[in-house]
């Protein structure tokens, strides 16, 4: 790792050559710090006038410390791409009344879906918070989380760019004023991935496959319909999110192919958790956990009977979808159509 002394002897040009990702760091500094400057940092810092520093909210000492930290974190961030999360394990804690949870170890594997059922306020948020914070017996439930069968490092809590859980919920909206392509470019750049264009076109293609109605790459994201937005969010989260775990809070039934949506997430080797009361979604999962009174009350493997039932439910669902499509295109429905 570069020492502060070494960094001070390098010029912005030399720094950018060695650490190209510093561009975004330099762009946040409000005093004169141009990328084409060939003078070493310590002479630039010496030349900054007090008034200029004051105006730009610039403090030389913390600047160097943050520069060093940024490089350090970026190096570990870029080096961690190979570090896969294949498996997440929850060790039991207690429910709200202090009763121990009745399971030995709850395992979530990559490419597997777990549904979460239980009334509102039963403790779903708490469970998710435990996972996000990689609880180590230090949250109100007393649960512990293992990553790849091991006690995780504190990085999962504190390192930026290393978050365990990505979330998709029904209340989410796009708020930025950008086109679909610009938006995905921005996300890709923040992740600093190599094959940006390839990933972006893959995401748009996948999203269009999920959404009932297709959208163009130039469409403003805020103009997308509910189904199209959801489709884009799912495809983007599957292919561009840094997080190995995806938590879905219900997927509405309209305007999106839910089965395909789950397949995309599973195909990208995500660990999928899905809070739902929709029988079709719940039974698509490999297992489901029942939450009651703040604790996990039961872990149920989806039974062969349930899988059989699922096929029938999907048939019924398909019929409903067909009727919806017919209605949309202005047709009159027949009694026989059911």
């Amino acid at each position: 790792m570069a020492s502060k002394e070494l960094l001070l002897q390098l010029s912005p040009v030399a720094l950018l050559e060695r650490f190209p990702y510093l561009e975004s760091f330099f762009s946040t500094v409000m005093v004169k710090m141009e990328g084409n400057d060939n003078r070493p940092l310590n002479s630039i810092l010496k030349d900054i006038e007090e008034q200029e520093a004051e105006d730009g909210a610039f403090d030389a000492e913390s600047f160097i410390a943050q520069l060093q930290d940024y490089i350090l974190q970026m190096q570990s961030f870029l080096g961690q791409d190979n570090e896969q999360v294949d498996k997440l394990t929850i060790l039991p804690g207690t429910d709200k009344s202090g009763m121990p949870e009745q399971f030995d170890a709850l395992v979530f594997e990559k490419s597997k879906i777990t549904s979460i059922v239980g009334p509102t306020g039963s403790g779903k948020s708490r469970l998710l918070a435990d996972i996000e914070w990689v609880a180590q017996g230090d949250t109100p439930t007393g649960r512990s989380i293992l990553v790849n069968d091991e006690r995780p490092t504190n990085d999962w809590r504190f390192a930026s760019g290393k978050k365990l859980v990505a979330q998709l919920s029904q209340n989410m909206n796009f708020v930025m004023d950008l086109s679909v392509t610009e938006f995905l470019e921005m996300h890709a750049r923040s992740r600093m991935i190599a094959n940006e264009n390839q990933v972006i076109s893959k995401i748009i293609e996948a999203a269009n496959e999920l959404a009932g109605e297709k959208f163009s790459p130039q469409a403003p994201i805020t103009s997308l319909s509910g189904g199209q937005s959801r489709a884009l969010m799912i495809a983007d989260t599957a292919m561009l999110s840094q997080s190995p775990v995806v938590l879905i809070d219900e997927i509405e039934n309209a305007g999106i192919d839910r089965k395909k949506a789950l397949q995309i997430l599973v195909g990208e080797e995500k660990i999928v958790l899905m809070a739902t009361h929709d029988p079709i979604l719940a039974l698509m999962a490999d297992q489901r956990i029942v939450i009651k009174n703040g604790g996990i009350q039961a872990v149920i493997q989806t039974t062969p009977q349930e899988k059989k039932l699922l096929t029938r439910l999907e048939e019924a669902d398909k019929k409903l979808q067909q009727l919806r499509t017919k209605l949309r295109s202005g047709e009159v429905l027949n009694y026989k159509d059911q």
Binding site: F158, S160, G161, K163, N171, S190, M233, D236, T237, L240
Partner: peptide, 25 residues
């Protein structure tokens, strides 16, 4: 974070990080 997309959350956090790399976010 509950009302914007996952992508926007990630980008926003990345921008905060580039302004203040030492903070816990």
């Amino acid at each position: 974070g509950d009302i914007v997309s996952q992508a926007e959350r990630e980008v926003f956090a990345a921008r905060v990080h580039s302004v203040n790399p030492t903070a816990i976010i």
